[in-house]
């Protein structure tokens, strides 16, 4: 067996592996694109309004808890708040325990059904936290200095990103 034929076979195997992976990658990308509806964990308020999801169908609604929207209904057990993506907002009612991270301006994902009057009746509320980590004092200092751009920008709803969600607390290297 000559040396060149050995390297030729190596090259052929290389092409086969690379080609195989490329074909596989394209196939997986196609499948994932086709299944996108099922992979997406929640819809944002804009998507909900625009899609006209059938009433009574269970789905997840996610976004930021709108500032100043939270209140307890007079019955004393129903939490009421609005979920927003900056463009649209949906009113949510929920009876049950809220997670520790639940607060206005923070991301949440809720599951439930839409009532005919467009109130979302949630049976489950999960808090979504963002990718920023910092000590309390630093967060307060940032807020004081006016460089704060709002909490909960970990939530990306549909196409239109809320203006306040653009902010990023970035700590460069060091």
């Amino acid at each position: 067996m000559s040396l060149s034929s050995v390297s030729a076979r190596k090259r052929r195997r290389l092409y086969m592996v690379v080609g195989g992976l490329a074909v596989l990658g394209v196939a997986v990308a196609l499948v994932l694109t086709a299944l996108e509806e099922n992979i997406v964990f929640f819809y944002g308020p804009s998507e909900v309004k625009e899609k006209q999801l059938p009433m009574g169908q269970r789905f997840r609604l996610g976004g930021l808890v709108e500032d100043g929207s939270y209140k307890m209904l007079p019955d004393g057990i129903t939490h009421a708040f609005a979920i927003t993506d900056g463009a649209e907002a949906v009113q949510v009612y929920y009876k049950g325990l809220l997670p520790d991270l639940f607060r206005e301006g923070q991301g949440v994902v809720t599951e439930g059904t839409l009532r005919p009057d467009e109130v979302f009746m949630a049976t489950e509320v999960l808090a979504k936290h963002d990718e920023n980590y910092m000590p309390k004092e630093v967060a307060e200092a940032l807020k004081k200095a006016g460089t704060w751009q709002g909490d909960g920008h970990g939530v990306s709803g549909s196409g239109d990103t809320p203006e306040k969600g653009e902010g990023e607390a970035v700590f460069k290297g060091q």
Binding site: Y133, F171, G173
Partner: peptide
């Protein structure tokens, strides 16, 4: 860059 404070 990372979005984690240097102390963390």
């Amino acid at each position: 860059g990372s979005s984690i404070h240097p102390e963390m």
